[in-house]
Simulated scan of single mutants.
Amino acid sequence: MADRSFDIARLPGFATIAVTIFVLLYLPIAMLVIFSFNAGDNVAIWEGFSLRWYPEAWANEAVKQATWRSLQIATCAAIIATTVATMAALGTTRRRQTRGQSFVYLMINQPLMVPEIVTAVALLIFFSSIKVATGYQGLGYLILAHAAFCIPFAYLPIRARLEGMDLSLETASADLYATRWQTFRHVTLPLVMPGAIAGLMLAFVTSLDDVVITLFVKSAGQDTLPTYMLAQIRRSVSAEVNAISTLLLLLTVVLLTAFFLLTRKRT
């Protein structure tokens, strides 16, 4: 008897729609990468292959400062977000299910569901009050704002890792008279580390690429690389921006590939 199971991939037009979607998604990115090697100044007309825009971008002092500032913010925000997310994941997975557990998950993942512009306005109002009260105008506000936004991105892979872990090893550690701290340090933490590293990289990429929250929270002279690029594009589209975007794309692909390798299930 013939197999009559439903297979969406066999529906008429499925392959055409899939190919069209992939072309629409990735063709602009491919064009960006190609034109970052354009020898001419015009970003829309190909004038030959050249690497000139990469050295020019690197020689630009504003690009260097924005890049260094972005890396500082993303690194600090990712570490803070991952630390908080790890504690939240332990608190929501290493305990009995209680009433209101779904509400806790909702609150932790709230930045994922609320439009980013709403989060940005809320952070602007909150940090503006602190700026007026303290007079402090440093990068600490951007780091905390990015960390708050990145917590759910770090939380999801860590929670998934913890939910897939057997409690028997931790129970055996307690049976051998290990303290809770010893159990966490020598049993739980090594087992959850792949998820924590994956969450750290995901939070880092999210912070590095953020524009909306940065625009609302930053003070004068605190442009990150994405906001610097946005300001440049508003003036004139330069192939230098294409080169910077290509390097950011490369960094993102490397980190997301590492994220995939760390979170995939091993057979």
Score class of each variant (00 low, 15 high):
Leu71Met: 07
Leu25Trp: 07
Glu240Ser: 09
Ala9Pro: 02
Gly135Gln: 04
Gly164Asn: 15
Val43Tyr: 13
Pro12Cys: 04
Asn60Glu: 15
Phe260Glu: 15
Ala148Met: 09
Ala122Lys: 03
Ile29Arg: 07
Ser70Pro: 01
Ser70Arg: 11
Met229Asn: 08
Leu124Asn: 13
Ile244His: 05
Phe127Leu: 04
Ala178Trp: 01
Arg10Phe: 10
Cys150Lys: 03
Gln232Thr: 06
Thr20Gly: 14
Ala231Asp: 06
Thr171Ser: 11
Tyr54Lys: 11
Leu262Asn: 12
Ile79Thr: 13
Tyr141Cys: 05
Pro55Asn: 00
Leu124Trp: 05
Leu169His: 12
Pro12Phe: 00
Lys218Trp: 00
Gln72Ala: 10
Thr214Gln: 04
Val241His: 00
Val121Gly: 07
Asp7Ala: 09
Ile34Ser: 13
Thr179Gln: 10
Ser70Lys: 11
Asp223His: 11
Phe127Asp: 08
Asn42Leu: 06
Val217Gln: 01
Arg69Ile: 05
Gly140Phe: 00
Gly13Ala: 05
Leu262Glu: 05
Gln182Val: 04
Glu56Thr: 09
Ala239Trp: 03
Ile233Pro: 04
Val212Tyr: 00
Met107Leu: 13
Leu139Ser: 09
Trp46Ser: 03
Thr183Asn: 08
Asp41Lys: 11
Thr16Asp: 15
Val211Tyr: 13
Gln101Val: 04
Thr206Trp: 13
Leu176Ile: 06
Thr246Leu: 11
Arg161Thr: 14
Val253His: 06
Thr257Asp: 08
Thr119Asn: 15
Gly135Phe: 03
Phe149Glu: 03
Leu230Ser: 10
His146Val: 02
Tyr54Asn: 14
Arg266Asp: 15
Ala122Asn: 03
Pro152Asp: 01
Thr246Gln: 07
Phe204Arg: 07
Thr214Met: 06
Val212Asn: 10
Met1Asn: 11
Ala231Ser: 14
Arg264Gln: 15
